[in-house]
Design a protein around this nucleic acid. Structure first.
Length: 629
DNA sequence: GTAGGGTTAG
């Protein structure tokens, strides 16, 4: 369903679409319209081509930087070592760097060793390149070993060397060692941290969710006379956006722009747009895109990818396709990530034939689907209960030699449970472990929920007690699943026992736990207990959400308890909550039966989208007609 | 005439 705001975003893009189409034929008129994203009057595609392969400004590329293949590099190296005298160490370093830039790290290390053998002196430059290769291959320990070797050859590490090693540690999630090294460098004055080193540490802290400490380090570097640059700010802004702390991100953004005078770039905007998309704050996304346009900051491939994904998740696949059209107009080539969003979008809507057609067309373009592509399709088939197609897809992936990951197994297991094939689901659960995939909390959640949904509450409980994992045993989500499952089977003794266990363990029930309890009480007609808990949850700092309201209301209606219906509907209206389909249908039944006053219709109208209300009242009129009312 | 840091999907 497209929201009002996202449709506004869509108009913005339509404008862009028109602009791009116009710009192809009449480039001058588009710039007169002031809609040109490009920083220069040159057309965007050619601009992209001219800037993406050159990183040294206007200087011509050296023959080393022009290297495009490993063979070429090896031939050049062979030719160089035959020359007398040997070319300078600088030439060798340039060659090494070119190979490293091609991401052929082990070959680069091989060449470095060859250089040592034939007697080319090691410089701090060549050493740093070699160390970087180790780090990029997640072999930071080898990087440290290399540092030791070079040290013995009297090559002294500098701030670049340590930055590379710090980055390697962070890449390997060894944040404690990174922090230790950073502190040691400062304490023993081994080198003065520069802006890159601070930014690297900030990146590490953000990676581990320590946004506050990262901001602290940003302040510290400033105090120590090292001005934070756009890299440092972008890293924290991005991390805050990923953690849904968008207000803090904007606070830092304002500080960067207005207090520090640092101009935001496409990465700053892309991070903010990502954060806003995640929170469905479309108006602000649109505002930022406009701001970028005013500042002549051209959206990047990633900016577009984020928008494509956001539209798909929102259910607006058409709009996502429109964004892809703009990308193509700009000369960008959408990759498998872009199409995965689109395929997932179709799968979420249950449009499996469209998803499959798109997959075929993607493959015919030479793009190779990955495990994520197949996960989306598997999920789509499972959610649309097309289990045979899902199983077929599962086998196809295995046959292709792609290793199904844990998510893939989880999805398939959930699909099997959803059609009642508990035996097959449990068998796959065993098979997954035999294939070396360790089940996580999600897997157990799926299994426990699956068993309960298929009236096997006791089996679920015994599995729960059998698994020795403390992460599982102290997981409120798992408890909520069990409580909900037992409640749906009407096993109130188990529901109460589990809820009591929470208290004993000191685990805090969340809104889902309370809602599961309320659903359980309602199911067996214990409305007073349901109402009491509904009132209590708010007092305990966990106010009922939209689902809690629907569950209690549903319980009241089902049990012919009409006294509190109106007051609940009023409260929902004040909170801008909405009714779900099944509760709405029950309300309709009770009104048609004369148990509830028709005057409630106005109130109900405020709790459902207009289209649904029209069909609701339409159906009611028809029903009344049929009943001769 | 050389080396180090940031953004995209279930």
């Amino acid at each position: 369903m497209m929201t009002r705001s996202s449709s506004r975003l869509h108009s913005f893009f339509k404008l862009k679409c028109n602009f791009i189409t116009n710009s192809v034929t009449t480039p001058l008129s588009s710039s007169r319209l002031g809609l040109d994203f490009s920083p220069h009057s040159t057309s965007l595609p050619s601009l992209l081509h001219s800037t993406s392969f050159s990183n040294n400004g206007d200087r011509p590329l050296s023959r080393y930087q022009k290297l495009t293949s490993l063979d070429h590099a090896f031939n050049l190296f062979d030719e160089m070592i035959l020359r007398t005298p040997l070319p300078s160490v600088v030439k060798f370093t340039q060659l090494l760097n070119a190979v490293a830039k091609l991401k052929h790290f082990s070959s680069c290390l091989h060449l470095f060793k060859q250089m040592c053998v034939i007697g080319v002196p090691v410089s701090e430059y060549s050493m740093n390149i070699a160390i970087r290769c180790c780090c990029q291959m997640s072999r930071t320990n080898d990087g440290f070993a290399l540092l030791g070797c070079c040290f013995r050859r009297a090559v002294v590490p500098d701030v670049c060397t340590f930055n590379t090693l710090l980055d390697g540690l962070i890449r390997e999630d060894r944040i404690v060692q990174a922090e230790r090294l950073f502190k040691k460098l400062i304490k023993h004055k081994l080198c003065e941290p520069d802006v890159v080193m601070y930014s690297t540490m900030i990146k590490g802290l953000c990676k581990f969710g320590n946004n506050d400490i990262a901001i602290g380090l940003l302040r510290l570097m400033d105090e120590r006379g090292c001005k934070p640059d756009i890299y440092a700010y972008n890293t924290i802004i991005d991390s805050l956006c990923k953690d849904k702390m968008i207000e803090d991100a904007f606070k830092l953004f304002n500080e960067m722009v207005f207090a520090k005078g640092i101009q935001p770039d496409v990465i700053t905007y892309t991070s903010l747009i990502y954060g806003l998309c995640n929170l469905c704050r479309w108006d602000e996304v649109s505002k930022l895109l406009k701001e970028m346009e005013d500042l002549r900051i051209s959206p990047s491939f990633q900016t577009f990818s984020i928008l494509v994904d956001a539209f798909c998740k929102e259910g607006s696949v058409d709009e996502a396709e429109a964004v892809i059209d703009i990308m193509v107009e700009r000369g960008e080539v959408p990759n498998i990530v872009t199409y995965n969003s689109l395929i997932n979008g179709y799968c979420l809507q249950g449009e499996m034939s469209k998803a499959k057609t798109l997959l075929d067309s993607v493959m015919s373009r030479g793009l190779i689907p990955d495990v994520i592509t197949y996960n989306s399709l598997l999920n789509g088939y499972c959610k649309s209960l097309k289990i045979e197609e899902a199983i077929h897809m599962f086998h196809e992936v295995t046959r292709k030699g792609l290793n199904p990951d844990m998510i893939f197994y989880n999805t398939m297991i959930q699909g099997l449970f959803s059609v009642g094939r508990c035996g097959d689901a449990c068998q796959l659960f065993d098979e997954m472990q035999a294939q070396g995939q360790t089940p996580n909390e999600y897997t157990y959640g799926i299994i426990l929920d699956g068993l309960c949904s298929n009236h096997q509450v006791e089996e679920a409980l015994s599995l729960f007690h059998l698994v020795g994992d403390s992460k599982l045993k102290n997981n409120i989500v798992v408890y909520s699943i069990l409580i909900d499952g037992a409640g749906k089977c009407g096993k109130l003794d188990i529901v109460r026992a589990l809820f009591h266990e929470l208290h004993v363990k000191g685990l805090q029930p969340d809104v889902r736990t309370y809602t599961a309890m309320i659903r359980g009480f309602c199911r067996v007609g214990l409305l007073r207990e349901a109402k009491n808990l509904f009132l209590k949850m708010g007092e305990r700092g966990c106010p009922p959400d939209n689902v809690s309201y629907c569950v209690l209301l549903h319980g009241y209606l089902k049990n012919q308890h009409f006294d509190d219906v109106e007051i609940l509907l009023q409260q929902m209206g004040r909170r801008s909550y909405s009714l779900d389909a099944s509760t709405l249908s029950l309300l309709k039944d009770r009104i048609a039966a004369g148990s509830l006053d028709r005057g409630l219709l106005k109130l109900i109208g405020m709790l459902v989208p207009k289209e649904l209300m029209d069909s609701f009242t339409g159906r009611e009129k028809k029903l009344n007609g049929e009943c001769g009312l």
